[in-house]
Nucleic acid binder design. Structure first.
Lengths: 142, 142
DNA sequence: ATATGTGCAAAGGGTTTGCAGATAT
DNA sequence: ATATCTGCAAACCCTTTGCACATAT
């Protein structure tokens, strides 16, 4: 079964219509990585040149509501990623890049659940400097 | 030493001018809790009726930059809290309320640092339902 | 005296909405 | 055939900015 078939099945299983725009968005995100709207649009327009920003927002919001994607916000911008097991999103203040770091969050989850809270989503964001200032030789903070 | 004196000293130590607006904002936040702009404005206007939203934003941003406060975003809105040791911010989707839950984050921090990343800020946000749906008797999710 | 802060209004930037036409089922 | 989706433009909301006046030092 190829990648597109998988996506088509996913969409159908959620009762969504299969459109080229939705397929393109899921193809972009399904293999990991983090994308903000600007990046999603840039990538998608290579494939679907006329795709509109509202279609992208609509699709991303739908996918987040259905639990296919998850989103989090950094500096007023929303980032989207495929939903997988909880992890740390490390935002490098030098490069703007976001990387995933896996950690065991079962202790955190257990504590939250023990308080009678049903967990819907867990976001861990670290802002930091991935390039050591001493090595990069200067003040590269924004 | 009373609360206001402490705040005055804090402001002076950071080279900031001591204004009634800044004092009021720090008095509101220094004892804990989470506030968004609307809440800060509502509270402050009981004391400083003419305080403007831009003054509040200016002050909050200044305090965040100086490390007195920290901020994080949920659903497009910025929340402010006094900077203290890392913890989980639990956002209840039923009530909109935010509560702190203390956890040991040293494992997370160690892992991030071992990758050569200098940590500037750590945010952990859990979205959940603090009122058990079975107890509250219905669908109260937004 | 003067650098800094405040308040107001306007501008900015990211996201959502309304709607007519297009598309998937 | 028709419910859903797309693309466009306008609207929205939160936040920032510019500037004249006020205040703290």
């Amino acid at each position: 079964m190829n990648e597109t078939d998988e996506i088509v099945r996913l969409l159908r299983s959620r009762g969504l219509k299969v459109t080229p725009q939705r397929i393109a968005i899921l193809r972009l995100l399904k293999n990991g990585g983090h994308f903000n709207i600007e990046q999603v649009l840039n990538e998608l327009r290579k494939i679907e040149p006329n795709i509109s920003i509202s279609t992208v927002y609509n699709a991303l919001n739908t996918f987040v509501e259905l639990g296919i994607l998850r989103s989090f916000e950094v500096d007023g911008k929303t980032w989207y990623e495929i939903r997988k097991k909880p992890h740390i999103n490390v935002v490098c203040e030098d490069t703007g890049q976001i990387i995933d770091v896996n950690v065991d969050v079962s202790t955190i989850e257990r504590k939250i659940r023990s308080m009678g809270i049903m967990i819907r989503d867990l976001t861990i964001v670290v802002r930091g400097n991935c390039i050591s200032p001493s090595l990069s030789g200067g003040n590269s903070q924004k």
